[in-house]
């Protein structure tokens, strides 16, 4: 059993399990699945002058606890359920990335760029620091991220979430096909 759990999980196992997070959180306490609101709660905890961050974040503490749980879950996965094989990528993707001088190294990301050493290179700094900023800015501007809009919002059949998800993809495609190749050349 443990051997089976250590293998990478196929989409038809992982997807439905993620979908079950929705009724789980609703039934446990009418909580709506979403991660990026935590970034706002953390801002509300810190000294600030924006009205947007003046609310009782403690009432949303469940969400912060959930976030801590994700970190713990990540740690448990690599310690108890580590995959026996290195991560493999679609051959066409590996080829495309190779032409951009990015090597598939068997980890979750190209560590030449996404590492502490990479942070002190121009492209690493742009991809992680500017990229992270856009994730935080864009998620709050749009009112949610992949979990809140793509999973929860679409499950509720909310039209605004569909528009947001189309935006996520417009931005992602624009970055992947037009801007990322330029950044990787730096």
């Amino acid at each position: 059993m443990l051997e089976l759990l250590r293998q990478p999980w196929p989409w038809y196992i992982a997807g439905p399990l993620i979908g079950l997070m929705i009724p789980l959180l609703l039934i446990m306490g009418n909580r709506h699945f979403g991660i990026s609101a935590n970034l706002r709660h953390i801002c509300a905890m810190l000294p600030n002058h924006s009205e947007f961050f003046h609310y009782d974040w403690k009432k949303e503490s469940w969400n912060l606890v959930f976030l801590v749980g994700i970190i713990v879950g990540g740690a448990l996965s690599v310690s108890l359920l580590a995959s026996p094989e290195p991560l493999t990528v679609a051959a066409s993707t590996a080829q495309d990335l190779q032409s951009l001088n990015v090597t598939v190294d068997g980890g979750y990301m190209p560590t030449a760029i996404y590492s502490w050493a990479g942070l002190f290179t121009l492209k690493g700094f742009i991809l992680m620091v500017v990229g992270g900023f856009l994730v935080g800015f864009g998620a709050r501007y749009a009112g949610g991220c992949t979990s809140g809009h793509a999973i929860m919002g679409l499950s509720e059949l909310q039209l605004p979430s569909l528009v947001a998800v189309l935006g996520f993809f417009a931005g992602g495609l624009l970055m992947t096909h037009f801007i990322l190749p330029l950044i990787l050349k730096l």
Binding site: I126, L127, M128, V130, G131, G132, F133, L134, V135, G136, F137, G138, A139, R140, Y141, A142, G143, C145, T146, H149, P160, S161, V163, A164, V165, L166, G167, F168, F169, A170, G171, G172, L173, L174, M175, T176, I179, L180, I183
Partner: peptide, 14 residues
């Protein structure tokens, strides 16, 4: 949703 979503998408791919 359009503007925020697009900015988020740019960051997601970065």
């Amino acid at each position: 949703y359009i503007l925020g979503g697009t900015l988020f998408g740019l960051g997601w791919a970065m």
